[in-house]
Design a protein around this nucleic acid. Structure first.
Lengths: 229, 229
DNA sequence: ATAAATAAGTGTATTAATTACATTTATAAA
DNA sequence: TTTATAAATGTAATTAATACACTTATTTAT
């Protein structure tokens, strides 16, 4: 078969990762300080180029793994950015991905070796290229996704308190929630199991730890349930 | 400046368009019968390759224009598909876009010259490559977008009846709605203007025509309004 | 002139979901 | 024993969603 595509233009395809974390107070992003040109010394998302042998999801996972040491992380393709001069070196289309990680899990020596640092969404530096737009887009998507699927748990340790969960949703949606109404809603969905274990760090009384029950969730979804917070 | 990207792989980037239309009864897709290899004679989405000189949105508009003759159409980037062998000819990543057009507006001679045809979502043929997955994805996105933004109007003529609008939402969400509740909800949003003009084709009494008031919508959005149907 | 047929247009009552709001409880430290 | 602190919990009010059926305007047929 002759190659009827042979006269078409080829381009570089990059992936850039918006890496979200949560420190029990605010939503954070893991950014790297570029130690290479162009824009050396500026802050940026972690990125890399797609290889012919991988699919986009794999490239994004590889990039994330390289910075954090983590595998099996919640990642989602966001949008492809294609402004002609978005990268001054050469025409590059970038596919943005976002990842949700539990900050405590990542390899901080590894990320520090890339001059990476966590920034709260409020005190983020300006980023290179179109990375600010990517972040904005990612926050919108994260809000939508979190409201309709139980992915928030990806940002928490396996065992968490109600307060942590509420603080997380408050951080994602950037508005305060009523504790009683929140608990009521979460309990009504019946997706968490309360453990016989308490977190004693936050109060004298201690607060119960919970776990998200993935199996139960899947069963419910099959019966027509849809998550909504 | 030396080109530090020179050893990276380059790939073909395609765009494929999921073109939605509405015939007052069901949601339809405009598909083409391929008159070239591979998969000649099979049904497919309309597509094309990204040129170095254009951004993805432009490529998608060009492809749509080429098939339908239409410009200034609602289009939205959907997702990038990258399976290694999705196109057997050569490694090609495809960025899917969806478009919403008013069927009556398009140049049907032009589309027929590409052996294009409208298919109801129910009686669609199998499509080539990963195009079935693209369509599935597009329907999901269309439902979400339609539920939260007033883009349904893109599928209707400028002037339309309440019944047409209801039928459209029923087609998009694939379930029936109560006429009184629907009217109530739409009227409560106060985004339509009722014209002093009636459509006489559907009944002896005639039914009032409405127009979507884009300006009013924009103003409301600025005051914190959010569309929800 | 009248009756029949047809889709358009409209309102109310019920149920469910969301919001607002304050006190008691368990525990450690003083 | 008191004090301080966060955890845990329930009810009433409001708002949104749903279920449901008759009247109106008009044309066509008798």
């Amino acid at each position: 078969m002759i190659n009827q595509y042979k006269d078409e233009d080829k381009v570089l395809l990059a992936v850039d990762c918006i890496i979200f974390g949560f420190d029990n107070e605010e939503l954070k992003l893991l950014l790297i300080k570029r130690d290479f040109e162009p824009e050396k010394g500026k802050w940026s998302l972690m990125g890399g180029f797609l290889k012919k042998s991988e699919v986009l999801d794999e490239a994004a996972s590889r990039v994330l793994q390289h910075l954090t040491g983590l595998n099996d992380v919640y990642m989602e393709q966001l949008y492809s950015f294609s402004k002609i001069d978005r990268d001054p070196v050469e025409r590059t289309i970038s596919v943005a991905y976002f990842a949700l990680i539990n900050i405590a899990d990542h390899n901080s020596e590894l990320s520090e070796s890339h001059s990476a640092q966590w920034f709260g969404l409020e005190d983020m530096p300006e980023l290179i290229f179109d990375h600010n737009a990517m972040v904005k887009h990612a926050i919108r998507r994260l809000r939508y996704r979190t409201a309709t699927q139980p992915i928030g748990f990806e940002l928490l340790p396996e065992k968490f308190t109600m307060r942590q969960l509420q603080k997380l949703y408050e951080a994602i949606f950037d508005h305060e929630l009523d504790k009683r109404n929140f608990t009521k809603k979460i309990n009504a969905m019946d997706l968490l199991v309360r453990l016989d274990e308490k977190d004693m760090t936050s109060s004298k009384k201690g607060s119960f730890l919970f776990k998200f029950d993935e199996q139960k969730y899947k069963k419910k979804v099959m019966d027509g349930f849809s998550f909504k917070v």
